[in-house]
Amino acid sequence: MAPHFDHPGEQAAQDPIRLLAIRETPLSIDEVFKAVGDDATGGTTLFVGTVRNHDGGADVDSLGYSCHPTAEAEMRRIAERVVEKYPVRALAAVHRIGDLSVGDLAVVVAVSCPHRGEAFEACRMLIDDLKHEVPIWKHQTFSDGTEEWVGAC
């Protein structure tokens, strides 16, 4: 039996997917956070993925992200799946492509739900599924001159 909610704010919003994008320009945490603002929200979870200076025991000098033309459509499919599973009031996700430096923002996702537990779980599902299913590839250059391509990230 489905749970009964006394207030509309306990339910998912009509159109909770507020922002989905893949960009070549720097990402904004503020933009993503503002996109998921909702007065019926009791919990908002924000995840920020940054370029780190190491991977697999090697020093990373730089990296570049590229994507398949279907990447945004895949992001939407994943966002819709999260919305189906959780009472999402608002959801946003942006991923960077192009050349990035250590410290740059690579991905920012956020989810707002009536309660914090749901927000944490929905945000975790969103970032994990984006990382594993969206066709975005990472090309890392290491300080020793070697390089590596990493599958869907």
Rank of each mutant, 00 (worst) to 15 (best):
T70E: 00
E84L: 15
V109K: 02
V109F: 04
A92Q: 05
A93K: 03
V107K: 00
A71P: 02
R81A: 15
A73V: 08
R116K: 05
P87V: 13
V83S: 03
Y86R: 07
D99V: 15
E84G: 15
A71Y: 01
C67Q: 04
A79H: 07
A92R: 04
G98Y: 07
V94T: 14
Y65K: 07
I97S: 04
H115K: 08
V109M: 09
A106D: 13
V108A: 05
R116V: 11
V107N: 05
R116L: 07
P114K: 10
H68R: 09
A90V: 03
D99M: 12
S66V: 12
E118C: 08
P114S: 10
E118A: 12
T70R: 01
S101A: 14
R76K: 14
I78E: 05
E84K: 15
V111D: 06
L91A: 02
D99F: 09
A90S: 05
A106H: 05
H68Y: 01
D99Y: 09
V107A: 12
H115I: 12
I97K: 01
S66T: 13
M75P: 06
H68S: 02
L100H: 03
P69L: 06
G98L: 04
P69Y: 04
R116Q: 07
C113D: 02
A79N: 05
A71Q: 04
R89F: 08
Y86P: 08
R96S: 12
A79P: 10
E74G: 05
A90F: 02
V108T: 05
E74S: 04
A73Y: 11
Y65C: 03
I78V: 09
S112A: 11
E72P: 07
Y65G: 06
V108W: 04
E84Q: 12
L100A: 10
R81Q: 15
R76L: 15
V102F: 00
R77M: 13
V88E: 03
V109D: 06
A92M: 01
V82G: 08
L100W: 08
D104F: 11
D104H: 06
E72Y: 09
T70A: 11
L105D: 13
E72L: 13
D104T: 11
I78F: 04
E84S: 15
S101R: 12
P114Q: 11
C67A: 12
E84I: 14
V102I: 11
S101P: 02
A71N: 00
V94H: 02
K85E: 15
T70W: 01
G98R: 00
V107P: 08
D99H: 13
P69R: 03
A90M: 01
P69F: 04
G103Q: 07
A110P: 06
V83W: 01
A92F: 05
P69Q: 00
C113A: 09
E74P: 00
V94M: 12
E74N: 01
P87E: 12
P87L: 14
A73C: 08
E72R: 05
E80H: 06
C113L: 00
E74L: 02
A93R: 03
V107H: 05
V82M: 07
P69H: 06
M75E: 10
D104N: 07
G98I: 07
V83Y: 07
D99T: 14
V108L: 01
M75W: 10
E80M: 08
I78G: 00
V108N: 06
R77H: 12
R96T: 13
H95W: 10
T70I: 09
I97M: 05
R116N: 08
V82R: 03
P69I: 09
D104L: 08
A71G: 02
A73T: 14
V82A: 10
